[in-house]
Simulated assay, not measured.
Amino acid sequence: MLTFAAAVFLLIVTPGPGVLSTAGVGAAYGFRPGLSYVTGLFIGTNLVLAAVITGLAAVVLSVPAIRWVLMAASVAYLLYLAARIAFAGARIAFIEAKSSPGIGAGVLLQTINPKAYAVNTALITGFGYAPGNLVFETVTKVIIMNAIWIPIHLAWLWAGVTLHRLNLAERTQRAINMAMAAAMLGVVALALLSAFGG
């Protein structure tokens, strides 16, 4: 069980679309909007977890066309979120992002996020510690995963909000927003490399 908990921590804490966008939303918009977004991520990640546990994800993702559609939707949505974070509060050309991504945005990101499916599948199907009692193992895995997921995402939100609360000069805040967006674009690039076997 401790090995499983360590694996959960390492897989969730590493920068992916969820934690990077959480920090970005916190840095760009503050705590309340960030908490709303994290709530959406939480709902979304548990929907993905339910899909993995029931086998629905395996059935759906066994169709290559659906995997490509999810990848394309995920990349497009991450690009959109990166733009929202990069241009938060700025009037640059036609882009103005005054309102923050909310609960719906978090749910959407997780349900089309390939990392969410990969991580949940690896954790649910691997790291067996109660082979004689699959129900116990599955229920405790869900509890452990959520018990680790919540503080990690709140910590990333806190890091972003801390940057937001420093009341930095507009130019510095914009640079931070751009850096957060660039990190998300890096995740997009890694996802595309992985999809094309690079």
Rank of each mutant, 00 (worst) to 15 (best):
F4R: 01
F4E: 00
A5I: 13
F9Q: 08
F9N: 05
L10Q: 12
T14F: 02
P17W: 08
V19K: 13
T22P: 05
A23V: 15
G24P: 04
A27H: 14
A27Y: 12
A28R: 10
Y29I: 02
G30L: 13
F31D: 15
S36W: 10
V38M: 11
T39Y: 02
T39A: 12
L41R: 04
F42G: 15
G44H: 05
V52T: 06
L56T: 08
L56I: 09
A58I: 07
V59Y: 15
V60N: 10
V60M: 00
V69R: 06
A73N: 00
A73I: 02
A76D: 05
A82W: 14
R84E: 10
A88T: 03
R91G: 02
E96Q: 14
E96N: 09
A97S: 15
S100H: 00
P101K: 09
I103K: 12
G106E: 07
G106N: 04
V107I: 15
Q110H: 01
P114G: 07
N120A: 08
L123D: 04
T125M: 09
G126E: 01
Y129D: 01
F136G: 08
T138F: 08
M145G: 10
M145R: 04
N146S: 12
A147R: 05
I148C: 04
I148Y: 14
W149A: 01
I152T: 00
W156Q: 02
L157C: 03
W158V: 04
L163K: 11
L163M: 13
N167L: 12
L168Q: 09
A169E: 10
E170N: 07
R174L: 05
A175E: 11
I176K: 10
I176G: 05
N177G: 12
N177C: 05
M178Q: 15
M180E: 06
V187D: 01
L190D: 13
L192A: 10
L192T: 06
L193R: 12
G197N: 09
G197E: 09
G198C: 08
